[in-house]
Design a protein around this nucleic acid. Structure first.
Lengths: 140, 140
DNA sequence: ATGGGTGCAAAATGTTTGCAAGTCC
DNA sequence: GGACTTGCAAACATTTTGCACCCAT
């Protein structure tokens, strides 16, 4: 399935039209292997589509997320959240309200780093996503 | 060891003075169990220290990080980084330049969610931190 | 005494939004 | 034709910075 088909189909499922901008952003995102930012995508595309605006790139990425063709790797423009516990531990994060609970689990601490070309990896941290008690009830 | 001692010592190791503001922020951060944001800490402290500025809270958190007494749970005000791969996968993140590489590892995919009071957890993602090839050489 | 810290306000950064004009089906 | 999207600029939220004054050592 070509990118165009894949995108058209995913958009159609939500009744959304396929536009040139959406196709351009989607193709660029699929081609890039370095988890580009909105800014990076905009930069990469402005040669071919000089009128493409950064706001459109943001909106399109949101749309791609909505139709299940993209995801965000980190969680910015949320506030930074700090922790006085500097030892190894993990987190349960509520998708509803952003609440973060610490998770202590030796089994998770023991995970060994995978081999990634060139990287020298040390610490790791596991993020579990879900709904906290309050948001679970709210959603019903 | 009291918070004051712990803080004084960590700061002294880098030749930095202990101030009332630093102590206040550090104590508040240790006491809070909900991964407060800078804003939240500022709000919590303004009753007792009305002149404490938000900028100082930010600077202090940075300092606490530098001396190893705090860490950031998420990574905001970095740009959002997007990914067209929507399946389960993990990431290797370079502390030097922020580069993100995908990690595919079935062993990691299979991790079962821990029990966290009230939470209903689904997906998870493992972040490995380290230095990429380029930053490794730069640091030497 | 002096190097660094604090508080303020302004700048910077990343993202979102309102709206007129344009595009897709 | 009608709903949705685009591009622009302005708004927004979070974080950083410059600078005059102040505090810890």
């Amino acid at each position: 399935m070509t990118p165009t088909q894949k995108l058209r189909e995913a958009l159609a499922r939500k009744g959304l039209p396929l536009t040139q901008q959406r196709l351009a952003v989607f193709e660029a995102l699929e081609k890039a292997k370095d988890h580009p930012s909105a800014e990076a995508l905009h930069r990469a595309l402005r040669g071919k589509y000089p009128s493409l605006s950064l706001a459109t790139v943001y909106k399109t990425l949101q749309t791609l997320k909505d139709v299940g063709l993209a995801q965000v790797v980190n969680a910015p423009h949320a506030e930074a959240r700090f922790d006085a516990i500097t030892g190894v531990h993990h987190h349960a994060i509520c998708r509803g309200c952003g609440r973060i609970e610490d998770v202590f689990d030796a089994r998770l601490d023991r995970l060994s780093a995978p081999r990634v070309k060139g990287f020298e990896l040390g610490a790791h941290s596991v993020h579990f996503y879900g709904l906290c008690g309050r948001c679970k009830t709210k959603k019903l």
